[in-house]
Nucleic acid binder design. Structure first.
Length: 273
DNA sequence: AAATGAACCTGTTTGC
DNA sequence: TGCAAACAGGTTCATT
């Protein structure tokens, strides 16, 4: 379940490996992803070199020296790793990009919610998939005041607001729960009823939670690249997610699970208000 | 207009 | 025990 910290961890791992490498060959075995893969589009990348490895929200943007950017989303179950060419295929290995250093960049995705598309590097931000994304939580564009301003007279539960990529980029179900627990905010609270001070606290908590997760993810990234495909998720100490019925780690409360926007929300009714 | 729910998928867990 | 239903969640589209 890759959210922003997992994608950032992958980005940091890929950056030194891919930068400067040339794309020698592209093989598409399965094109039925969230958005159909267009083999012709990907094959046009052959001969280009990777220039920059960036991230926007949960998207990876692999920029090349020929004006194209390979946009990759891992959906729910996507995996992206570099491996020796003689390594056996993993299940659901849909795309293989052969690199000039003799290795492969491989993409696997059992549920096929992922995406690989090629776009022109100029005005990337205007691409339909990126155009409506909210501010990046880890740079200065996200402030408590901005969220306060944008939520006056709104009634959505704050949890639903947080996982909407138009509000804030890159926050998924797990880290939304963790952030709200840290900020001591009830996930059901309508956003319009949250004041400036609490928005500031929420943003602060979000940054802390994401930064800690990236830190933890970084420690397991080498394992991920080696072969086993594990994202560093299990190295992250989750305080509420998936802990229904267990004691709150901060107060005497018991973690509860409810459903919001069709997804599980975990929170402590005692210290989240 | 805003908010919610369904749909897309398959692997895993839960319940009868 | 075995099978089926429920669940997991990122994003987009449809509906209320």
């Amino acid at each position: 379940m890759p959210e922003l910290p997992e994608i950032e961890t992958i980005r940091r791992g890929l950056e030194p490996i891919l930068t400067g490498r040339r794309i020698d060959r592209v093989v598409v075995r399965e094109r039925r992803l969230r958005e159909p893969v267009i083999p012709v589009q990907l094959r046009r990348l052959v001969g280009s070199r990777f220039l920059s490895i960036r991230r926007r929200s949960k998207y990876l943007l692999l920029g090349t020296d020929t004006g194209s950017t390979l946009l990759i989303h891992l959906g729910m179950t996507g995996q992206l790793w570099v491996t020796e060419v003689d390594q056996p295929r993993r299940p659901h290995e849909h795309v293989v990009i052969s690199l000039s250093d003799g290795r492969d960049l491989r993409f696997a995705d059992s549920r096929r919610f992922g995406m690989l598309l090629v776009i022109q590097t100029g005005n990337i931000d205007q691409h339909p998939r990126l155009r409506n994304l909210g501010p990046e939580p880890l740079d200065g564009s996200l402030t408590g005041d901005r969220l306060f301003q944008s939520t006056r007279n709104r009634t959505r539960p704050v949890k639903n607001f947080l996982i909407d990529t138009r509000s804030v980029a890159g926050v998924g179900n797990i880290y939304a729960c963790e952030t709200l627990h840290r900020a001591r905010i009830d996930p059901r609270l309508p956003v319009g009823r949250i004041g400036r001070i609490r928005w500031e606290r929420l943003v602060q908590s979000l940054r802390t939670v994401l930064a800690e997760a990236i830190e933890a993810g970084g420690t397991t990234f080498r394992d991920y690249l080696k072969a086993d495909g594990e994202v560093g998720l299990f190295a992250v100490a989750l305080r509420v997610y998936n802990r229904a019925g267990k004691p709150c780690l901060r107060c005497a409360g018991t973690i509860r699970r409810i459903t919001q926007a069709g997804r599980g929300t975990f929170f402590c009714p005692r210290c989240q208000r």
